[in-house]
């Protein structure tokens, strides 16, 4: 019985179990777990890299969440897309399987590797840890949206220039993480870069070149070649 909450807390808990409150809590809980997880034994959060927990996602117009398919409106890279999917579909599966936006990769499907990293309302998130229904009303940014068609973002170009990739399967996730870091950190350093991508795993073993690419991109990528697509 030592694990039971105190009586006053228990009352709060019962109040909390309305359907709506449950979903709001789910939103917050999912957001917490979707924030970059600490993948390393040695990880520590620096002052500059404190994880901000976004507020519960607004639920918009949707009244019912299944069972069965529901209409889900997602604003991705500035464009609203409507999907008819079950509420259990993750944002990652919505992107990859329904919208053919396959830049975000499915690797662990449980918030352990960062290959599916996207930016939502300015926060770095694991799209495998979000349900698509709870992302309605949010500004979702995927790797497909960080550069106009036929062009490449400074970060992507820096990755290519530094050979900050081998098989490339973790790369879009790292590119999103570094993009987010450089937007939010005015004075990026080797240490801040390492801290920023502690929630992304690379298997081929190319981290050190990712750090180099991030620092190159931070300089504005002056002199970066290959900024237009070679068809």
């Amino acid at each position: 019985m030592t694990d039971s909450p105190a009586n006053d807390e228990r009352e709060d808990l019962q109040n909390a179990f309305s359907r709506r409150r449950f979903l709001q809590t789910l939103g917050a809980a999912a957001a917490v777990s979707a924030a970059p997880a600490i993948a390393n034994a040695n990880a520590k959060t620096s002052e500059a890299e404190k994880i901000t927990i976004p507020p519960a996602t607004p639920l918009g117009e949707v009244k019912n969440f299944g069972p069965g398919e529901v209409d889900v409106k997602l604003k991705i890279n500035g464009i609203v897309r409507t999907l008819r999917i079950e509420p259990r579909v993750t944002l990652l599966d919505a992107l990859r399987d329904r919208l053919d936006m396959t830049g975000a990769k499915k690797v662990c499907d449980r918030g352990g590797c960062g290959a599916c990293t996207i930016i939502m309302n300015g926060n770095l998130m694991y799209s495998c840890m979000l349900l698509a229904v709870e992302c309605q009303g949010a500004e979702i940014e995927t790797i497909e949206g960080i550069a106009p068609e036929g062009e490449f973002s400074t970060v992507s170009s820096a990755f290519a220039k530094c050979d900050a990739l081998q098989c490339g399967f973790c790369t879009p996730g790292f590119v999103m993480t570094i993009t987010h870091h450089l937007r939010n950190e005015k004075n990026p350093t080797m240490e801040s870069v390492k801290q920023s991508c502690r929630g992304n795993l690379c298997r081929c073993g190319t981290y050190n070149r990712i750090f180099d690419a991030a620092l190159l991109a931070a300089t504005g990528g002056a002199g970066l070649p290959n900024t237009t697509e070679k068809k």
Partner: peptide, 21 residues
Amino acid sequence: IPRFDGLAKASGRAKYSYDMN
């Protein structure tokens, strides 16, 4: 020499087998 497919991979445009729909 930067690899030929570096930009395709770093932009998420490279289509892996897992990405075929």
